[in-house]
């Protein structure tokens, strides 16, 4: 175990969390991320027992989740695996696949609503050009948010995850907090 102490993408020792009316925005540092890509002609593997999802979709398993990122490419998420060598685990789970460590490539920000889908969808309207009406649970996409490129995952009616490149973490937090705050006022 290394004696170096990690910091979160927002530069603190603990994850940031802020609430705005019914919405709560939480930084989730403890997720292992690895991209998984197929070699030419390779069969689609089932890492962690996951059926890797179709374009625009995400799946959640017991120990890991996955969402589609491009033709023959997925991102595998390992909750609680932020400090581990998650890519090595994915490599074991998907022999022969091309796996790249992405744990610190992105910051995962989770937005939850304690008043159902409406506040979350209203927030989405101010952030991304994605129709919340057709972006239901299980949908995942990459798009632009306030000049940033983000992955967007609708985990549930009242739960949305935003994955932003780690170096943009503060810019993204500003955009999310400002927008959610305005909505709460």
């Amino acid at each position: 175990m290394t004696d170096l102490t990690p910091v979160t993408a927002l530069g603190a020792s603990t994850a940031r969390r802020e609430s705005f009316g019914p919405l709560t925005i939480t930084e989730v540092p403890d997720v292992g991320l690895a991209s998984l890509a197929l070699r030419q002609g390779q069969a689609v593997p089932t890492p962690f027992g996951l059926t890797l999802p179709a374009p625009g979709r995400a799946v959640t398993g017991k120990t890991a989740s996955a969402f589609w990122t491009g033709p023959d490419q997925w991102m595998i998420e390992g909750p609680g695996q932020g400090e581990a060598d998650f890519a090595a685990r994915v490599r074991d789970e998907a022999p022969g696949c091309i796996v790249t460590e992405q744990t610190d490539g992105f910051v995962v920000v989770e937005i939850t609503s304690d008043a159902g889908a409406a506040p979350l969808e209203a927030l989405m309207e101010m952030l991304v050009n994605v129709d919340p009406g057709t972006f239901g649970p299980g949908q995942a996409t990459r798009t632009a948010m306030h000049h940033l490129t983000v992955f967007l995952l609708r985990r549930a009616e009242d739960r949305l995850s935003v994955l932003v490149m780690r170096s943009f973490a503060r810019a993204a937090w500003h955009a999310l907090a400002e927008t959610a705050g305005r909505q709460a006022r």
């Binding site: 030419q40 091309i98 992405q102 610190d104 490539g105 992105f106 780690r166 170096s167």
Partner: peptide, 14 residues
């Protein structure tokens, strides 16, 4: 037809 994949990892590593 080349067997190659490209993944940007700029932010993953300090």
């Amino acid at each position: 037809d080349l067997d190659v994949q490209l993944i940007s990892t700029t932010d993953a590593w300090a």
